[in-house]
Computed example of a mutant assay.
Amino acid sequence: MKYVQPIRDRELIKKMKNELLKNGSRNFMLFNIGINTGLRVSDILSLKVFDVKDKTHITINEQKTKKQKRILINSNLKKDIDDYIYGMNDCDYLFKSRKGENCPLSRVQAYRILNYAASNLNLSEIGTHTMRKTFGYWHYNIYKDVAILQDIFNHSSPSITLRYIGINDDIKDKTIKDFYL
């Protein structure tokens, strides 16, 4: 499996959103929820309308860890979600596949959607985990609190969290950039 990176540039995040919007709001919202909640793609794809409709938090049992997770839906994301789910049934998957009556988008298809948009923008090292890593990267850069982020991600140590979001890579690159003997 290839290693993916967070999107470290706000302008590229905006371009990615616009690129995804070209094919409809579903793809945009998949990315938008991913980068604003830090949920794993498997947990995002299993969400149904009733999981977010008229809610202040997304509450799930993580598929990977089986732990309960509760993530705030902030006011900006709430507005986007409300606009997106307007007219949808409570039992509908948020991200429906075009195959079947009410089937969720597959992980593979989610990867293809994100990768296609990224390739149109000449971005590399992009995959479904990019959404979670982007959330973590920006959360850390804004709040500088690795302990909170470690808890959000259910990681066992701060070093795992920093490595996961690419902060260690940034620090290593910075130390080597002007290093020349």
Rank of each mutant, 00 (worst) to 15 (best):
K22Q: 11
K22V: 08
G24W: 05
S25K: 15
L30W: 13
L30Y: 07
L30K: 09
L30H: 08
F31Q: 06
N32A: 12
I33H: 12
N36Q: 12
N36H: 15
N36C: 04
G38S: 10
L39E: 06
I44D: 05
L45D: 09
L45S: 09
L47Q: 08
K48D: 05
D51M: 08
D54S: 08
H57Q: 04
T59Q: 15
T59G: 01
E62V: 08
Q63G: 09
K66C: 06
K67A: 12
K69P: 02
K69A: 14
I71C: 03
N74I: 05
S75A: 13
N76F: 06
L77M: 03
D80S: 15
D82Q: 10
D83F: 10
I85H: 09
D90Y: 10
D90P: 01
K96M: 06
S97P: 00
R98V: 03
K99H: 02
G100T: 01
E101L: 11
P104Y: 07
R107W: 03
Q109I: 06
A110T: 08
Y111V: 03
R112E: 13
L114Y: 04
N115D: 06
A117Q: 07
S119D: 14
S119R: 15
N120K: 11
N122L: 15
L123C: 10
L123D: 04
E125S: 14
G127I: 00
T128Y: 01
T128S: 13
T130I: 06
M131Y: 07
T134N: 09
W138I: 07
N141C: 11
I142E: 13
I142G: 10
Y143Q: 05
Y143H: 15
K144Y: 10
K144T: 00
V146D: 07
A147N: 14
L149N: 02
L149H: 00
Q150P: 00
Q150R: 08
I152N: 04
F153L: 10
